[in-house]
């Protein structure tokens, strides 16, 4: 399979990339890891006039924890970098849980977290993680930088709110106030398949009391589903079986799955319920053990 013909530029500076996008008037597309874009070009689902390859831009491969504890993930930080970053497990357990589950090991060597969020596939893992953790995309355009919460950034299936002349330069995950907890679980038929269903949970706790809860669902709707409303059942108290059950029921109700070759809608809803219960029960067990 060959992509249709396109022009190709590999700028060496961010300004140059933005200039190319501006000139492209919406017909230019950024190429980062390419693990979603190149298959789409080959299938001719996408046929941009111009590809702006940002792989040679300096200063975008970072995976940095700022002094305030927030995590910045650059546009060229590959999934495999996140997977190998053992230090993430403490402050960002949801990210540490998701990184090894993205696609397959070979794809993880090329694909990027920022690109995955921009691609906004309803079955993508990172958008759910980012929404559960309250992360933001930093976009740079001709007139400067702006920060967009990922919950607002993903505007629909394969759609985001970036202007055509903007580059998503990094995603920022805020530091947890108190102790971070949470997890990510995904069901896939085999490694690398699209998710049948996935659940991301991001919690902050003070002692055994949950102070913030975010939750988002992968693969059970036309876009990544923000189920943080259901997670509110957890805030202000301990992770009791009753609260966990309410959050799981809320998440299952928030899911909008469709029956397909991966399973029936009822089955996928059941998976969501099970995964929320499983993640929260594990956290509750950890809290109990730590106490």
């Amino acid at each position: 399979m060959y992509p249709s013909r396109f022009g190709y530029e590999s700028p060496r500076a961010l300004d140059e990339a933005i200039e190319l996008l501006t000139r492209g008037q919406g017909e230019a597309k950024i190429l980062a890891g390419g693990q979603s874009l190149i298959p789409m070009l080959k299938l001719r689902f996408a046929s941009p006039e111009m590809l702006v390859d940002i792989n040679n831009l300096p200063g975008l491969s970072h995976l940095t924890v700022d002094p305030d504890g927030s995590l910045r993930v650059g546009a060229l930080c590959r999934h495999s970098q996140l997977e190998r970053a053992a230090a993430l497990a403490g402050p960002f357990p949801t990210i540490a849980a998701a990184a090894p589950l993205v696609a397959d090991p070979i794809v993880r060597n090329r694909g990027t977290l920022v690109g995955s969020i921009c691609h906004a596939d309803p079955q993508g893992d990172w958008a759910a993680v980012a929404i559960a953790l309250g992360a933001s995309v930093v976009a740079q355009g001709p007139s400067g930088r702006r920060r967009i919460p990922v919950a607002d950034f993903v505007s629909g299936p394969f759609q985001n709110v970036l202007a055509y002349d903007e580059v998503a330069v990094e995603v920022v995950f805020p530091a947890a106030a108190g102790t971070a907890a949470g997890g990510y679980l995904k069901l896939e038929r085999r490694v690398g398949d699209f998710a049948t269903a996935g659940v991301a949970v991001g919690l902050e706790r003070s002692g055994s009391v949950v102070t913030r809860a975010g939750m988002a669902l992968t693969g059970v709707g036309g876009a990544t589903i923000d189920a943080s409303g259901a997670a509110q059942a957890l805030v202000g108290g301990e992770l009791t079986a009753d609260r966990i059950a309410r959050a799981a029921e809320g998440a299952a109700a928030a899911a909008k799955p469709r029956s397909d070759h991966r399973g029936s809608a009822a089955y996928k809803r059941h998976i969501v319920h099970t995964f929320v219960t499983r993640i929260l029960t594990r956290v509750a067990d950890d809290v109990e053990r730590a106490a």
């Binding site: 399979m1 190709y8 590999s10 190429l31 390419g34 693990q35 190149i38 298959p39 080959k42 299938l43 390859d53 792989n55 495999s80 397959d104 090991p105 070979i106 794809v107 060597n109 090329r110 690398g192």
Partner: peptide, 29 residues
């Protein structure tokens, strides 16, 4: 498979495995 699924086309790029059907030749420059 030509669809980034099977890994038969895996080569090493600077020592790391990548699927060569999911990368442009110009990117190997």
């Amino acid at each position: 498979c030509d669809t980034s699924n099977c890994g038969a086309c895996t080569v090493l790029l600077d020592g790391r495995p990548v699927k060569s059907c999911t990368m442009l030749a110009v990117q190997a420059d």
